[in-house]
Amino acid sequence: CHSECLGNCSQPDDPTKCVACRNFYLDGRCVETCPPPYYHFQDWRCVNFSFCQDLHHKCKNSRRQGCHQYVIHNNKCIPECPSGYTMNSSNLLCTPCLGPCPKVCHLLEGEKTIDSVTSAQELRGCTVINGSLIINIRGGNNLAAELEANLGLIEEISGYLKIRRSYALVSLSFFRKLRLIRGETLEIGNYSFYALDNQNLRQLWDWSKHNLTITQGKLFFHYNPKLCLSEIHKMEEVSGTKGRQERNDIALKTNGDQASCENELLKFSYIRTSFDKILLRWEPYWPPDFRDLLGFMLFYKEAPYQNVTEFDGQDACGSNSWTVVDIDPPLRSNDPKSQNHPGWLMRGLKPWTQYAIFVKTLVTFSDERRTYGAKSDIIYVQTDATNPSVPLDPISVSNSSSQIILKWKPPSDPNGNITHYLVFWERQAEDSELFELDYCLKGLKLPSRTWSPPFESEDSQKHNQSEYEDSAGECCSCPKTDSQILKELEESSFRKTFEDYLHNVVFVPRKT
């Protein structure tokens, strides 16, 4: 048989008469490798580009789960590009990614509803959504962080984005990388972005840091009482949809009607710091009717980097990364020049730590249904340095008659930039024990000054392991946590139920 035959053949030295091919099969003959313009397919066939392209389009058009959109890589027609490569849609070739590779997620039936953290986790790592997304989240724990972890990498949506009755959302900033909504599939009414009845939605994105392009379709905003109209108009300008909307697409009466839409800028007039305090004062603000001013709200939190936005980490279910302080308005003076500047002394802060701070007014709604208010920009203030805590785990070892090696770990709280350490030492008198000992005694162990690591005695271990207080009263049991108490109650309830079950099964009433 021919060298490319495997198993047997019907005619000697003829690659077209093989029972099976050793390498690849091409047009009725066995070959060692697939010549151009053919590609290896499933490690035994040679196919042309049209064959591989037909497989790709067949799966793409069917949208069946589990099928493969075949691509070409290293002269092979394979189910998908290997790690580190992405497909070129024009020629199906796998090309190296520039940075992290995109991950295209194809949605069944063309859309997916995100109504819980669990459903959001199914899209973790996706960068391109081939379909439409509907966000409908009523509640949950730590929602802002969970949504950002699972949806934060999405850069492109081919269909539309719909935010509907998501009472738990305060902001859409968890879509931190969303840059493009194509609108290839539109919501009824030709809408590519749809926001309806979101009672706590206050911000779409921080438009000073976020760009969003909507290729096709219109915007729809109705019944978002805490979303200011200025935020919607800003989205029109940034996304390129200005002029597409009709009169009733953006409701003037049901958007922002319960919001404090600040239209003035508060400026800080005085800032002073110490290692654990920050004193702030800002310019006074009074609405047209000074009785509408209820006070100020001061927001602050630790910020290692200057990239904080107002609604980071917030949701309507209680999660809030900001510390909020309510401040009463100052006494009002008739003389504008003698107006008191409101302020606040922030206490209990960490030394040498940068804080993000902003302040906003708290006002009631005027009778004319106009909203007044003022808010400052987010500023960054760093507390002063102070003395560091003591170095940890000092170790001293003498390696000769004239040297001592000293080692330690950095302090747990540096409280500033540590530039150097101060080492103090003092000579001590020799131990009298060394002169009084009889060095001729056998088995004498000389006193040693070398360091030995501390260890816990058996008594201390027994005390720590004991669940009861000892007789001397030195140790006591740790208080039980809520989960331990709940577990004990469940076990007790189970024992009672099981005992009742045994009584009912074992003891049967005697027939009379």
Rank of each mutant, 00 (worst) to 15 (best):
S338N: 08
G217P: 02
E264L: 11
R176I: 10
N399I: 12
K301S: 05
V238I: 13
Q199V: 10
R165E: 06
S116K: 04
T353M: 03
V324H: 01
I378L: 14
R272L: 13
I327C: 05
Q216M: 14
Q121V: 00
V238N: 02
T113H: 12
I404V: 14
T118Q: 00
I134E: 01
W322Q: 10
Y300T: 06
E111G: 15
I232G: 05
I379F: 05
L133S: 02
N263C: 08
N198H: 01
L143R: 05
V363L: 11
L201S: 05
I278V: 14
F193I: 08
Q258R: 07
H233L: 01
I114N: 00
Y223D: 03
I154T: 07
L331H: 10
C317L: 12
I327R: 06
L172W: 02
L172I: 15
I135P: 00
S274W: 08
Q216I: 06
P304A: 14
N150C: 03
V359F: 03
E368W: 02
R332S: 07
E187A: 09
D326R: 09
L161K: 00
V359K: 01
E310Y: 14
P304V: 09
K242Y: 06
K360P: 03
T254Q: 09
T118N: 15
F358Y: 15
P287C: 02
L252F: 13
V238S: 13
A149P: 05
S230W: 04
G139S: 10
I114M: 04
K277F: 05
S402M: 15
E368A: 05
S319T: 05
Y160E: 05
G240T: 01
E368F: 09
L406F: 15
W282Y: 02
H341D: 12
I114W: 04
L161A: 05
L227P: 00
N141A: 15
R370H: 01
N399K: 14
K301Y: 03
N141D: 02
L201Q: 06
D257A: 02
E122Y: 13
P304S: 05
F268M: 09
A149C: 10
F358C: 00
L204G: 06
N399M: 14
R244T: 10
K253C: 03
F296A: 04
P388I: 01
A303E: 06
N248S: 10
K209N: 15
P330L: 09
Q354L: 11
K242F: 09
Q314R: 14
V381L: 15
S239R: 11
A168P: 09
T241L: 11
K350S: 11
P394E: 03
L180E: 14
T213L: 07
L293S: 02
E231H: 12
P336I: 03
F174C: 08
W352C: 13
V390R: 15
I357H: 01
C261Q: 02
K253I: 14
Q258F: 02
N130T: 07
